[in-house]
Amino acid sequence: MDAVAKAMTIRFRHALLIAAVACAVLLQGARTTAAPLRIISLVPAVTEMLYAIGAGPQMIGVSSFDHYPAAVEKLPRLGGLIDPDIERVLTLKPDLVIVYGAKSDMAARLARAQIATFPYDTGALSNVTGTIRALGERLGRQKEANAEATRIEHGLEEVRVRVANQPRYRTLLIFGREAGSLRGIYASGGVGYLHDILSIAGGDDVFSDVKRENIQISAEQVLARMPEAIVELHGAMTPQKIATERGLWSQLPAVPAVKNNRIYLLSDEVLTIPGPRIVDAARLLADALHPTTKK
């Protein structure tokens, strides 16, 4: 009698356990599969991706640095990478927040508030289409996401084909330096989307061997690496200032890029936002390095 009762209890316990697990799985599934309706993106590149896959109407807030597409100008601005306004984010009751990095403070606080996050990190060029497809999965817009990713891949391929027969210049890609001098040069290393775009646009990064996204280099390194072309990314500048900054390179006359006047100062924001407009960035670089192939 006792043994029977015991067996019954154990069986009952098992049943309870199974039921609980099933419930949990179902609930969890329900929470993640339901497409989020209210989205906040604190990452400009991802904002562009969301609009590109038709999730624009679901957007309820963006970061302070978002300017594209024009529709974002009407949305509330919720701070930037280092200073997101968590209170306003919470008041807007989002279903999904796009944040930088899964381990960020912001991600942790949102997790505590039971708000789903989509962590984003800049990385290689393949990360752009990868993120678009992942967003498609998450938002139930696989079709649109796939179409957009394919469009980007085709666009990049087009650029690659366009410059295929051109000489591949050994290129120094500069992200920034001190204004008015050649000091404090930050250059692209051998990883990152800009490095990848440069390669598509028909240039070989002179620091391909350094497996880092960006590195500070000295004048000696410019002389040692002897780039045949120099591409500098700048903020918006007057033509006069561009001329002055370009002129500074005459201090290093032995560098082939200086000798052959292949120094390009580009200031378009598409170069710094690894979103759907990355194709435009690749075209810009290709146009600069290989102007004869320009369409």
Binding site: G176, R183, Y186, Q216, A219
Partner: peptide
Amino acid sequence: NFQDLFRAMRWLMGNLDVTS
């Protein structure tokens, strides 16, 4: 902005590469 912030931080760490 982010890039300037980065360069500003680096200025604080000192740099003698005067290039002229």
